[in-house]
Design a protein around this nucleic acid. Structure first.
Lengths: 247, 247
DNA sequence: AAGTGTCCTTGACACAGATCAATGACGGAG
DNA sequence: CTCCGTCATTGATCTGTGTCAAGGACACTT
C-alpha cells in the first residue's frame, strides 16, 4: 500500500536535494525535461520499496527519509549493503531487475524517473551521466570503507563506526556547530544495525550499553543519541581522530 | 625500482584489453588521442605500485597480472578492498591522492594515462566517461557482493567464495569448457587471501586443508588448484548453485 | 649438499561474539 | 487502564576463529 502523499514543494528548483542529487548539474531546460518523466512516491516506515529480483521500470532519488539496501542468503542470513539517505540514487540504468531489496526504515519520499526515458536522457545530456559517475565513485569509496569495518573491526569498533557515520551526515544536513556535542535520532532498529555490521542484535545491544556505560554516548530512550565528544567516538571506531588539519 | 619492460604489442588496437578496459568504447581517433598521453609501466610480483596517500599524477588500466587494493589501520590490521585483474581501472579522475595502497601480487603490466589530459578527454568525449560509469557500477556491485561475504559467511564459505570467483574469471579469460573440471593458479598468498576475507592466514590454511580433505578442491603444490565440480564449490560458498537456467 | 629465507601447515588453547532464553519498556487498540 | 505486540536488554553458555607456537616444504645461494 503506497501512500500517495505529495511533497511540500512544487518544482524541481525548490527541491531540497536539487543540488546534491543526480540532477545536481542539470540546467533549467534539462530540469524541465526531467519534470516530464518524474513522479513522487512515498512509503511509511517499515514498508518494502522493492524486492531483489523485482522488475524495475524506474530509477529514483531519495528526497527525505532513510532506506536500506539489503542482500539475503537462502537460509535467511541478511547483510545490509547500503544506507540510502536524502539525495542518494536507487537503481541502475540499463538494468531492469533489482539486485537488492530496498526497505524504508523511516517515512520515505522518493523522486522516481521512468527508466527508459531516463536512460535516453543520460545519453543525450552529459550532466546527468557525469553526476551519476561522481556519486557512484563516492558510493564505491563508502562500500570499501565499509569492507574494512566488516572484515577487521571488533564489535565495539563497528558500533562506534556506524554511530560516527550517522552523526557526521546528520551534522552535515543540520549544519551543527563543530566541536560541540552532537545529538541525533538513530534511523535504524537494533536488528538493522546488526545487519549493517555483520553482528547479531544481541551483540549490538550489549555494545550500545557498553558505550553508554563508558560515557562515549548518552542514550535517551532507544533511538535518541547524544555524542558528548566526537573525537572520542572516532577513536573508539579505530579511525584516526584528528580531523586532518593541525595534526 | 620499476622494471621498464615494454609490452609485446605495439598499438592500442592490438592491446589484449582493448575491448574491456576504460577505452572499450573509443573510436579510432579517440584512441589516437589516448596514445599521446599513455605510457606503460611494469612491476614484478610483490612490488608496491603506490601507497595510500601518495600523490598520483596518473590513472591506469591493468593490462596483465594481478594487483590488490588494500586499506590499513594504524595498528596494522589490513583489509583488501579490491582485486585488480586485467582491464580493471586504477585511480579516480579528479583525485590527486591515492585512497588505497596498490600492490602487484604477480608480475604486472599497466597502461598509465597522465591524469590531467585524461580528465580533459573525459569531459570532451562521452565514450570514456560512459565506459568508466559502467565499470564503476560493476565494481560497486562486486564490492556489495563482498560485503555479504565479509559480514555473514563462515570461514569455509568465505574461502569457497574466493575460489569460485577466481575460478570463474579464469574460466572466462581462458574460455574453458563449462561443466568440466577447472584448473587455475591462485594469484594470492595465504596472507593475501586472509586480508581479502577478513580472516587470519592460519584459518585460511586450515579451511583450504579442509576443502581438500573433503574433495571439494584438489591441490597440487600450494598454488595450483583443481575444482572437480564447480557446482559443489558454489554450494559450499553458500551461493545458489544453479546457474540460472533450467532451474 | 648444507644453509637460509619465505611461505605454508598443524596443534593447543583462549576469547569474542553467537546462541538460547527470560524479562523489560513502550506504544497502540479496545 | 489493561492487553498485547514489537523492540530492546541482560544473563548463561557454547563455539568458531584468533592467538601463540612449533615445525615442514620448497626455492635459491654459495
Amino acid at each position: 500500500m503506497h501512500q500517495v502523499e505529495t511533497p511540500k514543494f512544487k518544482t524541481c528548483s525548490e527541491c531540497p536535494i536539487r543540488h546534491r542529487a543526480v540532477c545536481a548539474k542539470c540546467e533549467k531546460d534539462e530540469l524541465e525535461r526531467l519534470e516530464d518523466i518524474k513522479y513522487y512516491r512515498s512509503f511509511s516506515a517499515g514498508q518494502t520499496v522493492m524486492w531483489a529480483g523485482d522488475h524495475m521500470d524506474f530509477v529514483a532519488s531519495v528526497i527525505s527519509g532513510v532506506a536500506t539496501l539489503t542482500q539475503t542468503m537462502e537460509d535467511g542470513r541478511t547483510q545490509m549493503v547500503g544506507l540510502l539517505l536524502p539525495s542518494d540514487f536507487v537503481g541502475r540504468p540499463g538494468r531492469s531487475q533489482a539486485t537488492y531489496s530496498v526497505t524504508a526504515t523511516t517515512d520515505l519520499m522518493m523522486c522516481c524517473f521512468r527508466r527508459k526515458p531516463f536512460e535516453q536522457m543520460m545519453t543525450s545530456t552529459p550532466h546527468i551521466a557525469n553526476r551519476l559517475l561522481e556519486m557512484t565513485l563516492d558510493e564505491l569509496d563508502a562500500a570499501r570503507e565499509w569492507m574494512l569495518v566488516l572484515g577487521r573491526k571488533t564489535a565495539r569498533e563497528k558500533i562506534a563506526s556506524l554511530l560516527s557515520i550517522i552523526a557526521r551526515r546528520d551534522a552535515l544536513l543540520n549544519a551543527a556547530a563543530p566541536g560541540k556535542e552532537l545529538m541525533f535520532d538513530l534511523p535504524l532498529t537494533r536488528e538493522a544495525m546488526a545487519d549493517y555490521l555483520g553482528l547479531t542484535l544481541e551483540t549490538v545491544s550489549r555494545q550500545m550499553s557498553a558505550l553508554k556505560r563508558d560515557g562515549i554516548i548518552v542514550l535517551k530512550g532507544k533511538r535518541a543519541v547524544t555524542v558528548p565528544d566526537m573525537d572520542v567516538l572516532m577513536t573508539e571506531a579505530g579511525d584516526d581522530s584528528d580531523g586532518g588539519y593541525l595534526t
